[in-house]
């Protein structure tokens, strides 16, 4: 019973962090109908920037803040440099998709260059900022609590931004009818840049949270987690914020349960097992509606 509860708490914390990454996939998909596979590398970049600025002794929180801004800018730059020119030329969607995969490798390999960070793993400052909470036999690390709380707060803020602010209204407008958004005077390019920035910033926060939990970073850290978060976004219904959250939680809990009861080798494939099941049973995900095509 205790191990079950422990695995679930573990999974919920990890799942919320996945949700933070998944919203980046989801929001970009919403405005561009594009799966941005460079997103996982932005997550890794975020964690590396925290590591880098901590090593410059600016302090953990300033380092995280700088990493958030830089990662947002990186995501925005990926779009401006590699994706926007393709949109302007009205390239076929698969070309853009492959470009995002290419960008992901470029970033990941740049991080692993010897003069930069190198391909080896680095220790990452622990986010166990206070004593673990012990309830019976279950120990909850403070980094898990921080992960859970920060992710919940951020996702609430994000929901507020999308539902209640002017820029959020513009995002929803672009998502539903880009042409009409142009026609009412929405600066669509700005909305797209804003979306990439927010997605990148959330990924950096997730990077700090997850690296702070495991205490380790490596250049390829974003590839598996990026794909897991992508699965989470699809499982919940891509394009929807609450879909990303539920998808993240399902993936997080499922993999922690699998690791607990089936062995740790089963952990990583779980996200994809769920993804495949969902694609067979309900291809639009939990909350997805049929017929979301770009008008």
């Amino acid at each position: 019973m205790q191990t079950l509860l422990g695995a679930i708490i573990n999974g919920l914390a990890l799942g919320m962090a996945y949700a933070l990454i998944a919203v980046g996939y989801s929001m970009v998909f919403g405005v561009l109908r594009l799966i941005n596979f460079s997103h996982g590398s932005v997550y890794a970049f975020g964690a590396y920037m925290v590591y880098f600025f901590v090593s410059l002794k600016v302090g953990l929180f300033p380092a995280i803040l700088i990493a958030i801004v830089l990662s947002g800018l990186l995501a925005l730059t990926i779009d401006k440099v590699a994706l926007e020119p393709l949109r302007r030329k009205k390239s076929i969607p698969i070309a853009t998709l492959i470009t995002t995969i290419g960008m992901s490798f470029i970033i990941q390999n740049t991080l692993s260059i010897d003069y930069i960070f190198g391909s080896e793993k680095h220790g990452f400052p622990s986010l166990n900022l206070f004593a673990p909470i012990v309830i019976g036999n279950i120990t909850i690390q403070s980094s898990q609590i921080i992960m859970l709380v920060v992710a919940v707060v951020l996702l609430l803020i994000l929901t507020f931004v999308v539902q209640k602010t002017k820029i959020g209204l513009a995002m929803r407008a672009v998502q539903q009818n880009t042409k009409a958004a142009h026609m009412v005077g929405v600066n669509v390019n700005f909305v797209i840049s804003f979306t990439f920035f927010i997605g990148g910033a959330c990924a950096a926060i997730a990077g700090a949270l997850i690296a702070g939990y495991y205490g380790i970073i490596s250049p390829s850290m974003g590839s598996t987690i990026g794909l897991k978060a992508f699965s989470a976004a699809v499982v919940g219904g891509i394009g929807m914020l609450h879909g990303a959250v539920v998808g993240g939680l399902v993936v997080g809990v499922a993999e922690c349960l699998a690791a607990q009861y089936l062995g740790s080798n089963v952990r990583d494939p779980m996200a994809f097992v769920i993804l495949i099941l969902i694609l067979i049973i309900k291809p639009t995900g939990f909350f997805g509606k049929k017929g979301i095509t770009k008008v």
Partner: peptide, 26 residues
């Protein structure tokens, strides 16, 4: 300048009021 386009081009999943709000976006 503003336009009421051919085929209406409303924002289908937004409310009437939100659609109007977007009309005043600028």
């Amino acid at each position: 300048i503003s336009i009421s386009p051919e085929g209406r081009e409303v924002f289908p999943a937004l409310t009437v009021h939100e659609n109007l709000r977007l009309g005043a976006y600028t």
